[in-house]
Amino acid sequence: MAKRKAVSGDEVDAFSANHRAHNWRAGQRKAIKTGANRRDRREARREARLENAS
């Protein structure tokens, strides 16, 4: 599995092992992770379509 590409500093903080050092609001960390996972899935779909097209 490839290392996740972080887009923002919030993602770096949310996915780090030291995420408890930050004071996250309710649902804030989940929203960041949901957006990152959605972006990963979208990219995987794009790659699969390009692979199947050629």
Rank of each mutant, 00 (worst) to 15 (best):
K3F: 06
K3G: 07
R4A: 04
R4S: 06
K5T: 11
A6N: 11
A6T: 09
V7R: 14
V7P: 00
V7Q: 15
G9M: 08
G9K: 07
G9D: 12
D10V: 05
E11H: 03
E11S: 01
E11K: 02
V12W: 11
D13Q: 09
D13L: 11
A14L: 08
A14V: 03
A14E: 00
F15R: 03
S16G: 05
A17V: 10
A17N: 12
A17P: 04
A17I: 07
N18V: 06
H19C: 07
H19D: 02
H19N: 10
H19I: 05
R20M: 14
R20N: 08
R20I: 08
A21S: 08
N23Y: 05
N23P: 01
W24G: 00
R25Y: 09
R25P: 00
R25Q: 05
A26E: 11
A26Q: 10
G27Q: 06
R29P: 00
R29H: 01
R29S: 00
A31F: 03
A31K: 11
I32F: 01
I32V: 09
K33C: 12
T34H: 04
T34E: 08
G35W: 01
N37T: 12
N37P: 02
N37S: 14
R38P: 00
R38G: 05
R39D: 02
R39L: 02
R39F: 03
D40S: 12
R41Y: 04
R41D: 07
R42V: 06
A44Y: 12
A44I: 10
R45V: 11
R45L: 14
R46V: 11
R46F: 10
E47Q: 15
E47M: 14
A48I: 15
A48V: 07
A48M: 09
R49N: 13
R49M: 13
L50T: 10
L50K: 15
L50W: 08
N52Y: 06
N52F: 14
A53G: 01
A53Y: 09
A53F: 10
S54Y: 07
